[in-house]
């Protein structure tokens, strides 16, 4: 296990490629090794939370007339993180609730803008993030598959040719695929969402708590599918509280703590240290003097 003593972390054991590729930033070109899937540079992400009142025009006018200021609370969900993820890595991310894992995933997907720092992503991304896709509750699973695919950037032809495959992969009982999503159990919902996101043949797959709801049979199947993706040398980032998933599937792991990378390295070791922390409630002693 490598303890993070700041500086740039490169996951895995491969040596950085010496061939460079260029990315276009706002302020000119950026050079980076061409074997990287994701480069995170000094990333900070802050949520702005309006503390006292509801966000309404009425309240804003009332406050302005009394000369009060809006009390904003800022939550730094990710703090000054730097990370290089080479292509073909299968990265597990563990950490306590509120550590910033989902926020990090959203920022890599381009959903959350960095408050400061920069993210460079090389490749097509498919996401299955914590809340599932924007599934419409009154539409059938099949309609939602189409909608989900289009939202993820597939063309209509692409998604229509895949719909049956996806439905077969989700393998819902008794024609539930044509029933409204509101009649689904959370596991059935999770199956459809997972089937959609692994169907995209992404270069980079982001999974946030994706496997938690499926039953044993579906877990087996999704593991199988993920191994296939791994063999195709795709990059996968998995956030999960099911620690066995992390140590089984991943070839490297990160432990996030309060928005920073506390440790990274071999998944078994990271999970072990993390479990110890969960039991004892204190950070490993070699970290405390940092």
């Amino acid at each position: 296990m490598t303890i993070n003593n700041s500086g740039v972390i490169r996951l895995g054991t491969s040596t950085p490629s010496t061939t460079m590729m260029t990315a276009k930033g706002y302020k000119g070109d950026i050079l980076l090794p061409d074997d990287l899937a994701v480069r995170i540079e000094d990333l900070t992400i802050t949520y702005k939370i309006n503390v006292d009142t509801k966000k309404t025009l009425k309240n804003a006018v009332m406050r302005a007339s009394k000369g009060e200021k809006v009390r904003m609370r800022q939550v730094e969900a990710v703090k000054k993180m730097s990370l290089d993820i080479p292509h073909g890595s299968v990265v597990g991310i563990v950490g306590a609730n509120g550590a910033g894992k989902s926020t990090l995933m959203r920022s890599i997907a381009g959903i959350m803008p960095p408050t400061s720092g920069r993210i460079i992503v090389n490749g097509k991304i498919s996401t299955l993030l914590a809340l599932g896709v924007g599934f419409n509750q009154s539409l059938s699973g099949r309609d939602n598959i189409i909608l989900g695919g289009l939202a993820a950037g597939l063309t209509r032809d692409e998604i229509e040719s895949k719909t049956d495959e996806i439905a077969a992969f989700a393998d819902l009982p008794d024609g539930f695929i044509d029933m409204p999503v509101r009649t689904y159990s959370s596991g059935m919902y999770g199956r459809v969402a997972f089937a959609v996101s692994v169907s995209m043949t992404p270069d980079i797959l982001l999974l946030d708590e994706a496997l938690s709801a499926g039953d044993a049979a579906f877990k087996e199947k999704s593991f199988h599918r993920m191994r296939e993706l791994v063999e195709e040398a795709r990059t996968i980032l998995i956030v999960s509280h099911a620690l066995a998933t992390i140590s089984d599937l991943c070839d490297t792991a990160i432990w996030m703590h309060k928005g920073t990378i506390l440790a990274h390295g071999e998944p078994g070791k990271i999970v072990e240290e993390y479990l110890k922390f969960l039991e004892v409630g204190t950070l490993p002693s070699n970290l405390e003097d940092m």
Partner: peptide, 17 residues
């Protein structure tokens, strides 16, 4: 799995503040 060819098209995105 039966199509191990990587459908990798270079597509570099930069997310900045």
């Amino acid at each position: 799995g039966n199509k191990p060819k990587r459908s990798f098209t270079p597509l570099i995105q930069v997310f900045e503040p």
